[in-house]
């Protein structure tokens, strides 16, 4: 086993994890503060990717696209909160799941209606394309490195926002006792809309950054949404720190599993069988990990309300 291959795979895992963190952070904030299960979070990810692709195609600038993705996803999030989600806070989780599932269908069909069902073109900006040499003779995609850095910066920013600002204080207060902070005169309605828009913007940012790497198409958000829920469950509901650590764990386990399991099975199985069986087991690995975490710590690794 070459050591630089292993390092590269760990970096890949971290990059995947950081992307999941951007999704899971919004999800866990919304659940922690408002007690709402938002299945439509994947649609906001898609909105971000489409906004970025459309603006980048019109202006030729990926960076403007990135700004547009933040704005479009935040706006879509705020509108959804005001028009639909606001009515759901007092309802039980089944109603929330039903209503936000309907939102997925509406977003998907709406996007298809606007952009068609063929995937859109969105490429990595010239300044970030190609590979960089890291110490130890390792070539690594510059863009993936960029995603890691942006993700870490967002994590640091969120930590600062929640731990050291007035808004963050209100968010934390909202998590522990929402009646009390409403009684203290904090405008809870606006706070909810803000939190929802913030979560949506993070999802949109993830969608735009990943869209350039993968493909921008209708339905791109749902597979990521499932993983983001896994991250939230592992990390502990409502905890940003949990979301970060859970996301990186899921990313690294998934990536290393895909790479190491077939290699391990190949020690005693023929190559094509090892590849096929190893691949199948690898795709289950993170769910097995989630089940283990639930057995040992049912509230997740860093539950906010523990």
């Amino acid at each position: 086993m070459q050591i630089d291959l292993l390092i590269e795979q760990v970096l890949n895992g971290v990059q995947f994890g950081v992307m999941l963190f951007l999704m899971a952070a919004g999800l866990t904030l919304i659940f922690g503060v408002m007690g709402l299960i938002n299945l439509a979070h994947g649609s906001l990810y898609m909105v971000g990717a489409f906004a970025c692709a459309a603006v980048a195609a019109a202006t030729g600038s990926f960076w403007l696209g990135l700004v547009a993705s933040l704005a479009a996803a935040a706006a879509a999030g705020a509108i959804v909160e005001v028009v639909v989600v606001r009515r759901l806070y007092k309802r039980d989780h089944l109603d929330q799941v039903l209503a936000t599932f309907a939102l997925i269908l509406i977003f998907s069909e709406g996007t298809r209606w606007l952009f068609g069902s063929s995937p859109l073109y969105l490429n990595i900006p010239g300044a970030l394309s190609g590979a960089v040499s890291l110490p130890g003779d390792l070539d690594y995609s510059l863009y993936r490195l960029f995603i890691i850095i942006v993700g870490m910066a967002v994590a640091a920013g969120l930590y600062f926002l929640i731990a050291h600002t007035r808004l963050g204080m209100r968010i934390r207060a909202g998590e522990s006792d929402r009646e009390m902070i409403a009684a203290l005169g904090v405008d809870i309605t606006t706070l909810y809309t803000l939190v929802f828009a913030l979560g949506a913007a993070l999802a949109g940012l993830a969608g735009a950054m990943v869209g350039a790497l993968q493909s921008v198409q209708v339905g791109m958000g749902e597979p990521v949404l499932i993983l983001a829920f896994v991250v939230v469950v592992i990390g502990g509901i409502g905890s940003i720190k949990g979301a970060l650590i859970g996301a990186v764990l899921v990313g690294v386990i998934d990536t290393l599993g895909r790479f190491l399991l077939p290699a391990a099975l190949h020690l005693f199985l023929p190559a094509s069988q090892a590849a096929s069986i190893g691949g199948s087991i690898a795709s289950m690995l993170i769910y097995v990990f989630m089940a283990l975490v639930l057995v040992v710590r049912p509230q997740g690794l860093f539950s906010a309300n523990a």
Partner: peptide
């Protein structure tokens, strides 16, 4: 020889193996 998940969208792990 590598089999990936149907619908997979991130191929970093596989590309590293190719390299």
């Amino acid at each position: 020889e590598v089999y990936t998940k149907l619908g997979q969208t991130d191929y970093a792990a596989e590309i590293a193996q190719i390299r």
